[in-house]
């Protein structure tokens, strides 16, 4: 299943939006945090986990999804949210803690909920998996179309919830796809130090489902593998596990000194940045010109700039609103 030119451009466009969104957040996050770096300060306080470099996982999978399909993501959710079609203005406003944010400022960057496109995420490792299984169960029981996709990090594949969710999904033959974004690190702990096998897709065999590994952080390859898995789920043939080799071009979170990385690792990763690679691919194979590219970059930047401006210009909620929405 090769992506059409239109689909490739959709992926590239969303990679650009995602990357520029993260770059913008990165800059604004540092406002008010120097010379002394204190997480509590600035227009965007708290922890911040950026997704720079991991865009291929998001776009290659979400290119096959409808708004009615379900996605659960992690503490590092922005790229997936963008590819799933989460409202960019309201997501930015949420990250700024504004009243116009998706949850009026209650959730912040690790708790992005946009029910209009069935997107949610959570900061507890692997805990998005059970809910994805449950959403798939709901579609199956209601005889309704739709698949669920749970995104997770490679570190999460060592959680009990990972193994239990795979088994449950397989036993009940649910329309769910588990997508591991393998960026080789769980904070400071390398995958090889935490995981008994080299590749997590091998674990699929233990649960009687297909497992696929996608090397090279390549959106086109992700597109193909995810397309098959999602089509299979839509046909009622059950779950699939996919592990994608990807790169975390940022620290674990903002403020991470990254002293645990071997010398030269970051440079090597930047040399394989998936965005310039995708651009070169489009130029070589799809008749994409420099002028086309400049226009798309401009367009995506203005979309992000508008979202950031919306967030900045929005008002904070009243403090007492903290008491609302606990129950409905």
């Amino acid at each position: 299943m090769k992506p059409s030119k239109e689909q490739q451009l959709w992926m590239y466009e969303h990679m650009l939006v995602s990357r520029y969104f993260e770059e913008s957040i990165e800059k604004i996050y540092m406002e008010g945090k120097s010379p002394a770096f204190n997480m509590a300060n600035g227009p965007i306080p708290g922890e911040m986990h950026l997704s720079n470099g991991q865009e291929p996982c998001a776009v290659g999978v979400c290119a096959h999804l409808e708004p009615s399909d379900i996605v659960t993501s992690t503490h590092r959710p922005h790229h997936v949210a963008i590819a799933k079609g989460v409202d960019l203005d309201r997501m930015a406003a949420e990250i700024f803690g504004k009243k116009t944010g998706l949850s009026g400022g209650r959730g912040g960057h690790m708790h992005i909920f946009d029910p209009k496109v069935n997107f949610s995420c959570s900061g507890i490792i692997a805990q998005g998996m059970g809910p994805a299984v449950g959403a798939a169960l709901s579609r199956q029981m209601q005889r309704k179309d739709g698949v669920a996709v749970a995104f997770l990090g490679e570190g999460a594949a060592n959680q009990g919830a990972f193994h239990e969710s795979l088994n449950l999904a397989a036993v009940w033959k649910l329309p769910v796809i588990f997508v591991i974004e393998d960026n080789a690190w769980g904070i400071s702990v390398a995958k090889r130090a935490s995981t008994a096998i080299e590749r997590n897709d091998q674990r699929a065999a233990a649960y009687g489902m297909p497992g696929h590994f996608v090397p090279g952080n390549d959106p086109l390859a992700v597109y193909e593998v995810a397309g098959e898995a999602i089509a299979r789920a839509r046909r009622g043939e059950g779950p699939t596990l996919i592990e994608i080799e990807t790169y975390r071009l940022a620290g674990h979170f903002m403020g991470d000194a990254e002293g645990y990385r071997p010398e030269g690792e970051k440079d090597a990763l930047f040399a394989r940045d998936p965005i310039p690679k995708m651009r070169e691919h489009l130029k070589a194979n799809e008749g994409w010109s420099d002028a086309d590219d400049a226009a798309l970059v401009e367009l995506t930047r203005s979309r992000v700039d508008a979202a950031i401006a919306f967030a900045r210009d929005s008002a904070y909620p009243e403090p007492e609103e903290a008491l609302e929405k606990v129950f409905v």
Partner: peptide
Amino acid sequence: YPDIPIPFTRPMEQWA
């Protein structure tokens, strides 16, 4: 702490 999940946004959290 009031009986609410801890809100993200600064004005709400500092108030609580």
